[in-house]
Amino acid sequence: MLLFLKILKAGIVTEPLAPGEPDVIEVAREVETKARRLLGRAVAIREVDAGSCNGCEIEITGLTGPVYDSERFGIHFVASPRHADLLLVTGPVTRNMEIPLLKTYEATPDPKIVVAVGDCARTCGVFRGSYAVVGSVDAVIPVDVFVSGCPPEPTDILRGILTALDRLPKRKRRRDGT
């Protein structure tokens, strides 16, 4: 009972998605129009940790919480790449994760989108040059959108995903410009 009183009192805490600085999101490839249309409002995400420090994961976890609530955009996380439309890859790709990352990409049915999250995913960040690191994510699988930041904020990640799906009109205009 107390629990439900608290729920009532708190109300809805989800914040509207504020537009952030544009330079955080970088579009690497044009997403097919078909995929954009199809995945518009129902996206299943498979998260792949390709060797991150788990900082990015903590931010990603924030997405599903009440404040950022990715579910309102029809975005939810799934347990198998077979169910997924979008791969959310974090970290530099380590040697051990190179084949698993490829396999995950292969296991995902078309149409599919890849969003690489964090500085490491693009530049290998502080891990660059390490023996254990193969390279950035786009060295292994094709990436559609990069979200920079170390770690990026949940808002940025969410915006990155939405950019890939081409949903926020603002982003759309921006991409049309590029």
Binding site: I99, E106, D110
Partner: peptide, 13 residues
Amino acid sequence: RLRVGDTWGCGRI
């Protein structure tokens, strides 16, 4: 469309 792939096993070899 139908594609034949590996059994999903969390990316094992």
